[in-house]
Design a protein around this nucleic acid. Structure first.
Length: 188
DNA sequence: CGAACGATTAGCT
DNA sequence: GCTAATCGTTCGA
């Protein structure tokens, strides 16, 4: 039986948590799948929303670990992060892709397409498939509607530079499940 | 108060 | 590969 993750599982550095989350299962209202791609962000990281200190938007990043930080991307997409490290620090892990395993029909309807590979391949697509919205910002990850289950075993993890940022472009803080075809982009 | 800019994606060339 | 879509956040004047 997979173990539900609790706040203590998110107390580490964001890059450690990001790596440990590969292979974990994420469900929102029973819909979701296996995490295959994450990115780590930190207060000391120019690419992070938390870099400049707390603001109205990023306040959840400075809250307790083990909660959600949801932000709107490009005025269009909702993206989901898991807050980590300790309260007040401003670290988080962006959930970038899943293998869809639960609620395929619901996700197909929300996304308006049939191709399983593109249901949750990218933070915006994942947000749409799981119906992530601002209403979940700051919400605990060990309570409904969230369910996060630890990876079983030690899945093979690959890493590389993060995607879509203009600062700290070379830091290898993007993590993926080796060989997965459900990531948003191939790892080099 | 104005303006630039995204932790993106879909659709077209 | 290139770009429009779309709007809240952030920062400078």
């Amino acid at each position: 039986m997979p173990r539900p993750l609790v706040a203590a599982d998110f107390a580490g550095d964001s890059h450690e948590v990001a790596q440990a989350l590969i292979g974990a299962t994420l469900l929102v209202d029973g819909v979701g799948g296996v995490i295959v791609e994450t990115e780590a962000y930190d207060r000391e990281d120019p690419a992070s929303h938390s870099h400049g200190g707390p603001t109205p938007r990023n306040q959840a990043m400075f809250g307790p670990p083990g909660r959600a930080y949801v932000y709107r991307s490009y005025g269009i997409h909702w993206c989901l992060n898991f807050v980590c490290r300790e309260e007040g620090h401003g670290a988080g892990v962006l959930i970038r892709a899943l293998v869809p395993t639960h609620g395929l029909d619901v996700m197909r309807e929300r996304r308006g397409l049939h191709d399983e590979r593109l249901l949750c391949a990218g933070p915006g697509r994942l947000g749409q498939a799981l119906a992530i919205t601002h209403a979940l910002n700051g919400h605990r990850l060990d309570r409904a509607p969230f369910r996060v289950l630890a990876a079983e075993g030690t899945p093979p993890v690959v890493r590389g530079p993060r995607i879509g940022i203009s600062k700290a472009v070379d830091v290898p803080w993007r993590f993926g499940l080796a060989g997965s075809k459900f990531v948003s982009q191939r790892f080099r």
